[in-house]
Simulated scan of single mutants.
Amino acid sequence: MSLALETYSTDSASCSIGNAMLNQVQAIAHQELLPIANNIDEGHYPREIMAALGKAGALGVHLGAQDTRYDLALAAMQEVGAVCGSTAFLMWCHGVCGLYMDQSENTALRDRLAGHAAGLTLGGTALSNPMKYLSGIEPMLLRAQKVANGYVVNGTLPWVSHIGKGQYCGAIAAVEDATGKITHEVLFILDMDERVQLDACPAFSGMEGTSTWRVRLKDYFVGQDDIVADPAKPFVARIRGAFILLQIGMATGLIQASIDAMREVTPTLGHVNAFLRDGPDRMQAEFDELQSRVAGLVATPFATDKEYLLDVLDARTHGAELALKATQSALLHHGARGYLRAAAPQRRVREAHFVAIVTPAIKHLRWEMARLMKEEVPV
């Protein structure tokens, strides 16, 4: 276990429970997930793996007002991400959807949380466009009008992952008044029922098993039981650090797996790999530094002060950049055998590219850090 629980807690009982859960996650990752990792990359949506992770307790450890364990959530994601980046991404999607319901004051949503945390129901997040909108990068794609007992929402979202018929996701719409002026934003749970049209997206270069769809809404009614936060901006400001912090587990799994892959070929290729700049010892030192930084952030995931948010944004950026470097180096260490279609090193390179572009992408993260440094906080 790379994220040692002793780093975060001196409570031996807590560490024991955490280690038991992570042992189950590790078994799922290596016994059930590893044999189908390439199938997931090519299009298999691993509902069965998500259900197993939920049963093990890995999907809900960061939820609950009294004992949020972001250390365990990241450690579990790292174990999974070392085997399959797509599934680690699905864990993040599921985790932040749970975050929305958990942190909402709407008791109707919190009543849905137990099934979600256990992986009995599956839900993702559609906040890519809203996060860019709130940062001033692009316009909001969903628009809402106030009606009796709720809102009517229209619009199209091009890329929403970890969804399908009978599932759900968190979404934000800009609320317009009678003149078309935006008055505020509303965050709600969008149920993928007969009212929602799902269209296939163009094929990605990988990670096809993330069940990513184009979502079209026409006069979709959002009732009071489905509203997470109204207005949305104060809520998003409160959870923003946790939202971004959870993504770091996708990067750390790829980094550790890549370092392990470099060491794996040392007995046969070490004499020539020694001439590569980014070797396993160098990568491990930088990775340990990142892990140390993350260990200091997980204890206060809902801090909102400027310095904390800068640290979270910078750690997330560091993780993405190190994932790019480590996965490329692992491929170079393996040579032609790592470039084979079924080889894990070439798949991890593509997974690392995804970590670098998924919202918030590296460029978005740097944009946000620049805004914060100028004290131009968008939400």
Rank of each mutant, 00 (worst) to 15 (best):
H318N: 03
V222E: 07
H333L: 02
P35I: 06
P234D: 02
Q31F: 04
A285M: 05
A75V: 04
H184N: 02
M1Q: 12
R195D: 15
L120Y: 07
I28C: 12
L3W: 08
T266F: 07
A118H: 07
F302K: 11
H44K: 07
A173V: 01
T87I: 04
I239E: 02
L90Q: 03
L276P: 09
N19H: 07
N149F: 01
L99A: 05
G270L: 01
T212R: 11
C97I: 00
A200V: 05
E6W: 05
L331F: 02
T125I: 08
A144C: 11
M369C: 13
V236C: 15
L324A: 11
P231V: 00
A315L: 06
R282A: 13
L134M: 13
N129W: 06
H333Q: 03
H184V: 00
D219E: 13
E185A: 00
H334K: 12
L276K: 06
E79K: 02
L187E: 10
Y45H: 13
K146G: 11
Q247L: 11
S135P: 07
D226E: 14
K325M: 06
M1W: 09
A323Q: 02
L22Q: 05
L141T: 11
V96K: 05
H353L: 01
V358T: 05
G166V: 04
M207S: 08
I172K: 09
K165E: 14
L120V: 07
S135A: 15
A27K: 08
M262D: 13
C84W: 04
S329D: 03
I182W: 01
A148G: 10
I189H: 01
K132M: 14
Q291R: 14
D230W: 04
P267F: 01
V377W: 15
S205I: 10
G253N: 00
A27V: 14
H162N: 13
A108N: 12
S205Q: 03
E376W: 00
P202A: 05
S161N: 01
M91E: 03
P378G: 08
R348M: 08
H162C: 09
L157R: 09
V152N: 06
P46R: 03
L72M: 06
T300M: 02
E32F: 06
C201S: 10
R350E: 14
V160Q: 02
T125R: 04
F243C: 11
R47M: 14
E138L: 13
G119M: 11
A126V: 02
A299N: 10
V272H: 12
A352G: 09
M131E: 12
E289T: 12
A20Y: 07
A56P: 01
C15M: 10
D199W: 02
D191Q: 11
D191T: 11
M192W: 01
H30I: 13
L331C: 00
R366N: 15
R350I: 06
E48A: 03
P130I: 03
V96G: 08
I182M: 10
L141S: 07
M21G: 09
G180K: 01
Q78W: 02
A37W: 13
K146F: 08
T107V: 07
S9Y: 10
V196F: 14
A76T: 01
A343V: 06
P231H: 04
Y220S: 09
R316Y: 13
P130W: 05
L5V: 12
G164N: 09
P46K: 01
L99R: 05
S9K: 07
A251L: 00
R110L: 13
Q66N: 15
M77V: 05
